[in-house]
């Protein structure tokens, strides 16, 4: 097991270094002057020149890259040109919100998607299957920003059930920061009012973010279950008088979820990227909205750090996915 993890980590490192090189070069070759942006609208050319020198932007690009890699190795991602704080601390402050949102969305996608996929397969070519196929195609096709606005109009404006935006009501005091995860901190502080408020605020963003993943999981699970149902062991199980529910949930599903697990692994990275739009619409204060700001303002250090962070998350989730595959089918752990 440990050898398997070490092999996978070893393979991930060159990919991450490649990502760093490509991102660094892309950020440097676009015609954007970070120093000018940092100096502000009313800055003189002398002020901009001073900042360019301070930030080392007047040095050759190779030298800049070597310095940057050295810093990254020490987990120093530099200072945001605008917030003037360390990028690492900005990310640390925002990552919990993104992870909470992503896990909630993933939980919705999995807990709703897998049963629906199984159900659709069991009702193959009947009306529930047709309805679910249409819904799952729509789920993939519908734009997140449109779905978000529809949810806001219905649940916030029309029915008044759920908050429109944000992570916590403006009039609600925040619990003391311990872990950075708002809900967890609320629980630790015994602040049930804040927990309830935070849960209220995450429902619409999580639903929006889960839509695409849910549709994919329904389709993959349906296809996997349909395939497995053709196997002889299923006919044998039926002939032996196994209860239908036991046969499906215990044996058929276990043999059908390999593709779904892979899909869930890919989805996780996709959800972090998809959060950019969802967080912006709902003003959910995670990495997504931070990234949008960084792109619009040309905050290079932030763009580099966030890209690398998403790369690391992708790599970690891929390794985790391989591990789960291994748990489902231990023969895979022995393969190089």
């Amino acid at each position: 097991m440990l050898g398997f993890i070490a092999r996978r980590c070893g393979l991930a490192l060159p990919s991450l270094f490649g990502l760093l090189v490509v991102t660094f070069v892309l950020v440097r070759i676009v015609p954007h002057d970070s120093a000018a942006a940092m100096a502000g609208d009313a800055a003189t050319p002398e002020q901009i020149a001073k900042l360019t020198k301070e930030a080392g932007l007047d040095r050759p690009i190779i030298e800049q890259f070597v310095i940057y890699v050295g810093k990254v190795a020490r987990f120093d991602f530099g200072e945001s040109a605008f917030s003037r704080r360390s990028v690492a601390s900005d990310i640390k402050e925002r990552l919990p919100a993104t992870l909470t949102l992503t896990f909630c969305a993933l939980a919705i996608s999995i807990t709703v998607g897998i049963p629906l996929g199984v159900f659709a397969a069991l009702r193959h070519n009947e009306w529930p299957d047709y309805v679910l196929r249409i819904v799952s195609v729509l789920g993939v096709a519908v734009a997140a920003f449109w779905f978000a606005i529809m949810l806001q109009l219905l649940f916030s404006m029309q029915l008044g059930w759920l908050p429109l935006r944000g992570e916590l009501s403006a009039t609600m005091s925040r619990p003391e920061r311990v872990t950075g995860f708002l809900m967890l901190d609320s629980v630790i502080a015994g602040r049930w009012d804040a927990l309830g408020d935070a849960l209220h605020h995450i429902i619409l963003p999580a639903l929006t973010l889960s839509l695409g993943g849910l549709a994919s999981i329904v389709r993959f699970t349906r296809a996997g279950v349909l395939d497995t149902l053709q196997n002889d062991f299923v006919s044998y199980g039926r002939a032996m008088g196994y209860r239908r529910s036991r046969l499906v949930w215990r044996y058929v599903l276990r043999n059908s979820v390999t593709a779904t697990i892979t899909q869930i692994g890919l989805l996780f990275g996709g959800l972090i990227a998809g959060g950019v739009v969802v967080e912006s619409i709902y003003d959910y204060p995670g990495i997504g909205s931070y990234t949008v700001q960084a792109i619009l303002t040309g905050d290079n250090q932030v763009m580099l750090a966030v890209t690398l962070m998403v790369g690391v998350v992708y790599a970690a989730v891929n390794i985790l996915t391989d591990l789960v595959h291994g748990l489902v089918d231990p023969r895979l752990l022995d393969k190089p």
């Binding site: 029915l159 009039t171 927990l195 309830g196």
Partner: peptide
């Protein structure tokens, strides 16, 4: 608690204070 919090309606207006 989580379920109750999620089901409790009418908490949308934030600026009434």
């Amino acid at each position: 608690i989580a379920a109750a919090a999620m089901l409790a309606p009418g908490r949308t207006t934030q600026a009434a204070d």
